[in-house]
């Protein structure tokens, strides 16, 4: 309980600070404030998808259904954060580039990520047998994970990106104001905490549902 309250206060402080404490960015102006929400969401989407894929590999090697469940929950959470990143990105794109969607390379790759995980959930819903569903979806997520990096090679060759970069590779430094960096890192920590909490909640809920199912089955057997 303590942690949840702390997280609530923390996130409220981040939201207030992103409007009041943080200065408007150079070049991007007031729209730059979205960095506090957009970038952590995108980072968590990638993190959750990565964990999901690792769990899928683990399932293929060891065959424990627990790992399949972790892979699925992480894929779901990743999709939530991915949607947040896509929508905030589209809103920012309207303000900065003139229209919500223009197939910038970053937009292309996030759209492909969403497509892959939509396909993943469609595949899962098509199979009813538990072990078979776990195996097929694990194979699919590994296959998709291996082929997608190719997009990183093709797309920049065809179109140039206008997406602002956080890390300045030439100077090897963060292109950020001190105040802004503080708020940004605080938001990153807050979002990661949010993800951990969400994961715990979903996992607990699923465990309870499992227990309920077992109990029902036990009662049905004792009646017989």
């Amino acid at each position: 309980m303590f942690w949840q309250i702390l997280l609530g206060i923390w996130m409220t402080a981040v939201i207030l600070a992103s409007f009041l404490y943080m200065p408007a960015t150079q070049g991007l102006g007031q729209t730059g404030r979205i960095i506090v929400y957009h970038v952590p969401a995108a980072w968590l989407a990638v993190l959750a998808y990565l964990i999901s894929m690792l769990n899928a590999v683990g399932y293929l090697r060891r065959g424990e259904l627990r790992l399949d469940r972790q892979a699925r929950i992480n894929a779901e959470l990743g999709t939530v954060f991915c949607l947040v990143a896509t929508v905030t990105g589209a809103i920012w794109s309207r303000a900065a580039w003139g229209w919500y969607w223009n197939w910038d390379p970053r937009q292309t790759s996030i759209a492909v990520l969403l497509l892959i995980y939509t396909a993943y959930f469609v595949l899962r819903s098509a199979v009813s047998d538990q072990a078979r569903r776990a195996r097929l979806s694990a194979v699919y997520s590994v296959l998709a994970f291996l082929t997608v990096p190719f997009l990183v090679f093709v797309v920049p060759r065809v179109y140039a990106s206008l997406h602002p970069d956080l890390i300045n590779l030439e100077q090897g430094s963060f292109d950020m104001d001190r105040k802004m960096l503080v708020v940004f890192l605080a938001s990153l920590a807050g979002f990661t905490g949010l993800y951990a909490w969400m994961y715990k909640l979903v996992a607990r809920l699923e465990n309870l549902l499992d227990k309920l199912e077992q109990q029902k089955r036990g009662e049905a057997e004792s009646e017989r």
Partner: peptide, 19 residues
């Protein structure tokens, strides 16, 4: 289902082949 599953996996190939 085939098209839905194959499209994201094949997309890099298709884009590369088209260009």
């Amino acid at each position: 289902l085939m098209t839905v599953l194959a499209f994201p996996v094949l997309l890099p190939l298709l884009l590369g082949a088209i260009s």
